[in-house]
């Protein structure tokens, strides 16, 4: 039994058509060329009236079919296939969807079309990213806390050693270490709270080159002390843009700081250079921070945004890249 009859209501073809139109996911029916031959309401709302166009052109703005196309697989074997895809809506927003495909057969049982049903899972994906970020943040915190614990262990040991040796100077030295590390905990907690707090990102029209110059001013003395050449290459044609200037400042500062650190620890080169560059591509503003340091060894790449780049308290809390990614 595939349905229960309701007294007085015998679903008509019109009802089934209504059902197809109102399903809260994207439905497109495609032929073997992957050309869209029918769509439902939600599809039209988010992708436009695209009947007659190729699926990959509509969903992904591509000129070639996707390598693991579930629709093509269903045409080939008549089975249901699924995949997770990233698509672009008509207003240019990226969306994550889970796709299921199902064959549509004629009276002879031949597959004449394939129905593709896609559920938008973008909010779930966002949540997943947030959780991953949170995991990375916890790893960074743990690393910072490890350093402080070493300091506290050390302070307590030296205090005890001073007390048992009746050496007041040593005791005070140990006490200093304890106090310093308690202050580090306090500073770390403040950083955690800064990261955790939800901040508004009010956008206004700003001159991005002005922010870049502010960041340059902030770092050029530090760079000179380390004998690193810090340069700016401004795109004069980059006009005002809509951004949060504080966010841009934070991002660039974190990247410049990391670039300078990378150069500082590079033993393979004598002359180091860090460049902050602005550029534009059509309406898109481009900000770039590059350095001629050693880059990341292959085996470290998986640690980006995790503990390896969060070195020691004296160099900051290690939250820079996490904050950058978050913004």
């Amino acid at each position: 039994m595939d349905r229960i009859n309701i007294d007085g209501w015998e679903p008509t073809q019109h009802d089934y058509r209504q059902l197809f139109q109102k399903v809260p996911c994207y439905i497109s029916v495609q032929n073997s060329e992957l050309r869209i031959i029918q769509t439902n309401e939600l599809f039209r709302q988010d992708f436009g009236d695209r009947v007659g166009e190729l699926c990959y052109s509509v969903y992904k703005r591509k000129t070639d079919p996707c390598p693991e196309c579930p629709v093509a697989k269903t045409f080939a074997d008549g089975q249901v296939h699924s995949s997770e895809e990233q698509v672009i809506t008509r207003d240019g927003n990226e969306a994550f969807v889970i796709v299921y495909t199902s064959p549509i057969r004629n009276d002879q049982g031949e597959i004449v079309a394939v129905m593709e049903m896609s559920t938008n899972i973008t909010p779930v994906k966002r949540l997943q990213t947030e959780l991953t970020m949170m995991g990375h943040t916890v790893a960074t915190m743990a690393h910072g806390i490890k350093n402080i614990l070493t300091g506290l262990d050390g302070g307590i040991y030296v205090v005890n050693s001073g007390l048992s040796n009746r050496d007041q100077k040593e005791t005070l030295k140990g006490w200093d270490i304890v106090q310093r590390n308690v202050a580090r905990i306090s500073s770390l907690v403040k950083d955690i709270l800064y990261c955790a707090k939800k901040r508004g990102h009010e956008i206004s029209v700003i001159d991005p080159n002005h922010v870049v110059m502010e960041v340059f001013d902030l770092f050029h003395e530090t760079a000179a002390l380390e004998k690193i050449q810090l340069d700016v290459e401004i795109d004069p044609k980059l006009g005002p843009v809509q951004l949060n200037s504080e966010d841009l400042h934070t991002i660039l500062s974190n990247l410049v700081h990391n670039a300078l650190e990378a150069c500082k620890f590079d033993l393979n080169r004598r002359e180091h250079r860090v460049v902050i560059r602005t550029d534009h591509k059509g309406p898109i503003a481009i900000f770039e921070v590059s350095d001629n340091g050693p880059g990341l060894p292959e085996e470290w790449k998986s640690y980006v945004f995790t503990e390896i780049l969060s070195t020691k308290e004296r160099y900051g809390t290690g939250l820079g890249l996490l904050v950058t990614k978050k913004i």
Partner: peptide, 10 residues
Amino acid sequence: EEDVRTYLNS
């Protein structure tokens, strides 16, 4: 880190 040096030294 001076704190760590002092600790290990002690």
